[in-house]
Nucleic acid binder design. Structure first.
Lengths: 220, 220
DNA sequence: TAGATTGTTAATCGATTAACAATC
DNA sequence: TAGATTGTTAATCGATTAACAATC
């Protein structure tokens, strides 16, 4: 058991884990619409996946349905939230108070799910002391001390490419457990650090690739 | 042939296409470092993948190497750029001039690759007429006309969740070919429209899931 | 030529889909 | 009870890795 009552779900394929937030999102919408029950068949149809995949995915985590009935929407919603780990609060800091950093600091969907931004760090003296969405911008020199004293588990990197690796190392040394990187470079971290890269420009390139055939024969 | 000289690369698996930008990124760094040649072995090691996968991936698009020698870095870089479609310019508009919209409008990496933001649209009269990074914010009523007259192929959605589907439909009707959606909802578009969803909150949830086991046994 | 490394086929591995007995 | 739908096993499909002949 990891933490209270949550089995460790080792060996669950990453491809399944990445689908959990989407399930959670759709179930959340059904809860809002006061839908009480749903079958794997119907939920899968809504989501554009197969009912087999949905049941197979849930099967990695336990038994949540009832034969002949389906799933109680609110129960399944809560279960998946618990599996993801949403009943805990995660303290975050953000490094790099540029445009993207400020936008993320203002993003309302994070706090709503228990992701709490505790501080923003930058090297620009003109920004230090300001507040964004009630979160103070601090000098990056204060980072190690702040992480240690505020139980920070996630560090978000929104600095320019050339500064990203240095910031990552600073975060790791300070004791952060996970890093969410927006700089357009693959940063290197030790194996025990969890890393998610968000390469926005890469996504645009995939769009460009897929656009080729569309644009070929059409008048522009 | 789609467009001038580019074969259509139908049937290339999406999982391969999504790796292209990463190859392009690593090759770009090697070009900057003036590295002339590289073997699949070495490049794969750098990227943390297998040499088999790298060669297999390239094989979908042609023969770019030379037995006993490897690949000429600059040539391969240019080839992959061409495969992705980076020799063309893509005109974009962005809808929703909030924090995230403004951050994206200021993001320098897009223009650098030929993705050109032509206009920003919003409904807030106080924003209309302002400029962000030299791009004017316009009234959303002008959108259909603007798309038609400026050869816009990509629409970026950064409006709140409840407005996203409506904006998507507006973009499709106006003639946009591809949509990059940042609203935290799965929008619906006709099959012929290319869609990329960027669900930022989903990525944080994956971090949360993976954090569980890490946080379990450690003192906090 | 000998060594290196590709392009490509075959083998393995993993993920998705199909099927159905169990059971609410 | 009869109908519906789950949980789960087996079959299929696709992606990754291994291997090697071709060849620079």
């Amino acid at each position: 058991m990891a933490r209270n009552g949550r089995p460790s779900y080792d060996h669950v394929p990453m491809v399944v884990i990445k689908r959990l937030p989407r399930y959670y999102r759709y179930l959340g919408e059904l809860v809002e619409k006061k839908v009480e029950r749903i079958s794997s068949q119907k939920l899968a149809r809504m989501m554009g996946i197969s009912a087999s995949q949905l049941r197979q995915d849930l099967n990695h985590f336990g038994e949540f349905g009832q034969q002949g009935y389906g799933y109680r929407v609110e129960d399944l919603y809560n279960e998946i939230g618990r599996i993801i780990g949403l009943e805990y609060q995660y303290n975050m800091i953000l490094v790099g108070a540029g445009n993207l950093g400020q936008a993320l600091a203002n993003y309302p969907n994070f706090a709503k799910r228990g992701f709490c931004l505790k501080a923003i760090f930058d090297i620009n003296p003109r920004l230090i002391g300001m507040k964004i969405n009630d979160v103070e911008i601090r000098d990056i020199d204060e980072l190690p001390d702040f992480v240690a004293k505020n139980n920070i588990s996630i560090g978000i990197i929104t600095v320019p490419k050339d500064a990203a690796q240095g910031v990552a190392e600073m975060l790791v040394d300070a004791g952060v457990k996970a890093i969410w990187n927006f700089a357009p470079i693959d940063i290197r971290v030790p194996d025990h650090i969890i890393l998610e890269n968000e390469h926005l420009a890469d996504r645009l390139m995939v769009l460009a690739f897929r656009l080729q055939d569309k644009l070929a024969y059409e008048p522009s």
